[in-house]
Amino acid sequence: MRSTVPAGRPNRLFRNLNSKIALIPMILTALVVFLGGTVWTVVYSFTRSGLLPRLTFVGLDQYERLWAAPRWIISIQNLAIYGVLSLIFSLVIGFILAALMDQKIRFENTFRTIFLYPFALSFIVTGLVWQWILNPEFGVQSVVRSIGFTNFTFDPLYNSQIVIYGVLIAGLWQGTGLVMCLMLAGLRGIDEDIWKAARVDGIPMWRTYLFIVIPMMRPVFITTLVLIASGIVKVYDLVVAQTSGGPGIASEVPAKYVYDYMFQAQNLGQGFAASTMMLITVAIIVIPWAYLEFGGKKRG
């Protein structure tokens, strides 16, 4: 009945052929777009590309010009201030909110819905509504003045010294809900017995959080940190909508620099160099994390 001849070993490439065909889009995306595109941009950042990409290498010229440009320096400064503060505040606020939400409170769902809804909104919407609220003629400043504090000044969007803090307020409003959710998921993932043990041992709640729970949540913190940080580097729409980089160039950010030089100033080389700098920044954040997260596991 059955053949006694062993089945020929099919060519490895054609085994489960369908699964390989199905992965072609992913492989193309990974190799051509992500890897290829990145390498292409990095290579062209060493050229004298202007209106069109040209392969005339000029060494580090583009980078020298970049770091000599006041607008780039301001962009980097803004990114640093925005980044550090946004990290600290969103982690602290997010964790506190999550810890409060974790106290078996009533209306938990209502509160969560309220804290998280801004995350569903785009940065454009976020930027525009905070532009309106921070409008000195009609917004918070005028309201506070109208109730008697006539010297009250709060016009971050029109003051180049503090404009980035105005953007920060909007950014925190949009993003802390997400951090809260991640933290809450982390808190819920902690063994109930830890809390029971701490209670039986008579350890006050704040100490339990500080010395037991937070150290246990290290992975959640790190993941959140990396997520926020790599998001911060990309910050673009928020600034475009809220301040358009102004007043003057006081609230410029690197991502906007890239876009403006690539698509408006038609100075591609600058755009490529600036985007490569962004790439390096992200790499500095992500690589140590990836090393800790995945490199360590393989050996363990």
Binding site: V33, F34, G36, G37, T38, W40, T41, V42, Y44, P53, S230, V233, K234, Y236, A255, V258, Y259, M262, L268, G271, F272, A274, S275, T276, M278, L279, V282, V286
Partner: peptide, 10 residues
Amino acid sequence: FIPYQVMIYP
């Protein structure tokens, strides 16, 4: 994690 700006022009 790569900023979109890096890949947009290609």
